[in-house]
Structure formats: structure tokens, C-alpha cells
């Protein structure tokens, strides 16, 4: 009965440490590992939860199908038709091409390649520069205002500049993706490398770790949660910029090009098919990154 009279818990709530979310809001919560206090497991069992989830999803799609069927609007085609169109458009090719049609290999693959290259470049540079900046208080203070400004610029605003410098094409698109995706990783890595527990640094000094050892054994592992928070944000930004840079008039191929092309021809079915494709793509990429994160960080969060 001690806790009934003790009103401290309300105070305790305010001082209770939690992992700050600075990256995407979707970051920490979506894997569900960080939910709730241990005392309260009101969630349904996993099997029942999954069943409920899929039933509701199926019901939603069925409702969508029914409503669009009855209204017969040009703008909202029924999902079954979208699915058929998606299949016809991209996935009805010969088996030798992994069932991809020329339409798919000409547009989807270049887009994906650009995005992967841009994201990889941004991540590698961001982590390297971020670690370097995070290790030196002076360097961090020197660069911080410039970095904050660079991050504050909405990336699409810079795309016209890249168009002028590189003209339309892969270079311009890569530059747009890299320039927008690098800042979250860089800033998060620097913050992560900066806020290392001083005790650990002292232990590293006592053990006389070399600079490389300190980097691999202490700096990167400690900064990893923050690095991933940055990477998640960067991933969604690079997906956005990939589409955006292809939407501009003047591009010749890519998923975004398919989208604008369909828009100009008022081909609503293709527009919807592209949306479904992009949604699936975003889902797969995000899930993949989360899986890597879980693998590297483990279930317990290192503090």
C-alpha cells in the first residue's frame, strides 16, 4: 500500500528518462519494442493481433472496391483494376527478365539505382564527417551554424540550382538526393559521437586504446542508435527527392517520369499504379533498414 499514499509517482514521471526522438516520428515507436511499462501488457496476443490486422485491412480494401465500383469515378478506379494494371504494366514480362516488362526495366531500375547510390553516398559521407565533427568540440562549434542552416533548407528548393549546374539527368538527380539526405545522418552522427558517456572515454583512455580501436569499439557503437535515427530520416528524404527530381519536366525516365507522363495523359490507372508501387517500395525499404538496425543494435537499447 506504500504507493497509494505516496504521490511521488507523478513527479517521477517527469524525471523518468526516455529515449529522445529527434529523427522521424515513426522511428522509435513503429517496431513496438519500446512500448509501455512492463506492468501493463494490454495488447492482444500476436496471433490474434495479426488476424485482426489483416481482417481489417481486407475489409478496408473490400469497402474501397465496393465504393469505387458503385460510384464509378474516373479519378478513383477500383483496387482490383489497379492491381491488374500494375501487373500488366510492369510484371508481365518474360521469365528471362524476372517477369519485368521493358517499361519496368527502363523506369523502375534506373530510379532505384539512383536512389541507392545517392543514399549510400550520403550515408557514407555523413557518418564519416559526423564522426570527425563529433570528436572535436571546436570543429563541431565551427560547423554547427552552417550545418543547421543547410539542414533547414527544404531540399526541393535546391533542385532548380542543380538543374542549372548539371542539366537534367542522373547527375542532377544524384546531387539532389545526396544533398538532401546527408544532413540528417551527419548531424545525428555528430550528436551521437559527442554525447558519449565520459566514463567510457576514461575507460578507453585507461585501456590505452588506439584511435582506430576507439573509433570501432567505442565511438561508432555508442553513436549507432543516433546514426540509425538519422539514416531513417535520410532514407525517406532520398525517396522523396528521387521522385521529386524525376517529376520535373525534362527528365527522360524513372518512376517519377512515369507518374508525370501518366498525369499529362490523364491516365489515372497508371498514376494509381505508381502510387501503389511507391508505397510498397517505401514499405520494403523502411522495413529493411529497421531489420538492419535491429540486427546491429539488438533488442536491448544500449544506453
Amino acid at each position: 500500500m506504500r504507493w497509494v499514499g505516496d504521490l511521488k509517482p507523478v513527479r517521477r514521471l517527469r524525471t523518468r528518462p526516455f529515449r529522445p526522438i529527434r529523427g522521424f516520428g515513426g522511428g522509435a515507436p513503429e517496431d513496438g519494442t519500446g512500448r509501455g511499462g512492463g506492468g501493463e501488457s494490454r495488447r492482444a496476443t500476436p496471433a490474434r493481433g495479426a488476424l485482426l490486422r489483416w481482417t481489417v485491412l481486407a475489409a478496408a480494401v473490400a469497402a474501397w472496391q465496393l465504393t469505387t465500383r458503385t460510384h464509378d469515378s474516373v479519378y478513383f478506379p477500383p483496387p482490383a483494376e489497379i492491381a491488374r494494371h500494375t501487373h500488366d504494366l510492369w510484371f508481365s514480362g518474360p521469365a528471362t527478365h524476372a517477369f519485368l516488362t521493358p517499361e519496368a526495366t527502363d523506369n523502375i531500375l534506373p530510379s532505384l539505382a539512383r536512389m541507392a547510390t545517392g543514399f549510400a553516398l550520403a550515408a557514407a559521407t555523413g557518418i564519416a564527417l559526423g564522426t570527425a565533427l563529433g570528436r572535436s568540440r571546436r570543429a563541431y562549434a565551427l560547423c554547427n551554424p552552417v550545418l543547421q542552416f543547410a539542414r533547414a533548407i527544404p531540399p526541393p528548393a535546391l533542385v532548380p540550382v542543380f538543374v542549372v549546374i548539371f542539366d537534367f539527368g542522373t547527375q542532377m538527380q544524384l546531387a539532389s538526393i545526396v544533398f538532401s539526405a546527408i544532413w540528417p545522418v551527419l548531424i545525428n552522427t555528430a550528436e551521437g559521437a559527442r554525447n558519449i558517456d565520459p566514463l567510457r572515454l576514461e575507460v578507453a583512455a585507461v585501456l590505452r586504446l588506439t584511435t582506430t580501436e576507439r573509433l570501432w569499439l567505442l565511438l561508432l557503437p555508442s553513436a549507432l542508435p543516433r546514426i540509425f535515427a538519422g539514416l531513417r530520416l535520410s532514407l525517406s528524404l532520398s525517396l522523396i527527392l528521387m521522385v521529386f527530381s524525376e517529376l520535373l519536366p525534362g527528365t527522360a525516365n524513372g518512376i517519377g517520369f512515369t507518374l508525370t507522363d501518366a498525369q499529362s495523359r490523364s491516365d489515372l490507372l497508371t498514376v494509381w499504379a505508381v502510387l501503389v508501387l511507391l508505397g510498397a517500395l517505401g514499405y520494403v525499404l523502411n522495413t529493411g533498414l529497421l531489420a538492419v538496425e535491429k540486427r546491429l543494435l539488438g533488442r536491448g537499447r544500449p544506453t
Partner: peptide, 15 residues
């Protein structure tokens, strides 16, 4: 719904 890059909705919504 969430992973859909919002920029991709621009053409549909402007139609």
C-alpha cells in the same frame, strides 16, 4: 499509407 512518399501524391491531388 505512411511509407508512400508524399511528393508522389502531387500529380494525383493536383488532378
Amino acid at each position: 499509407l505512411r511509407p508512400l512518399p508524399s511528393v508522389a501524391l502531387i500529380p494525383l491531388v493536383s488532378l
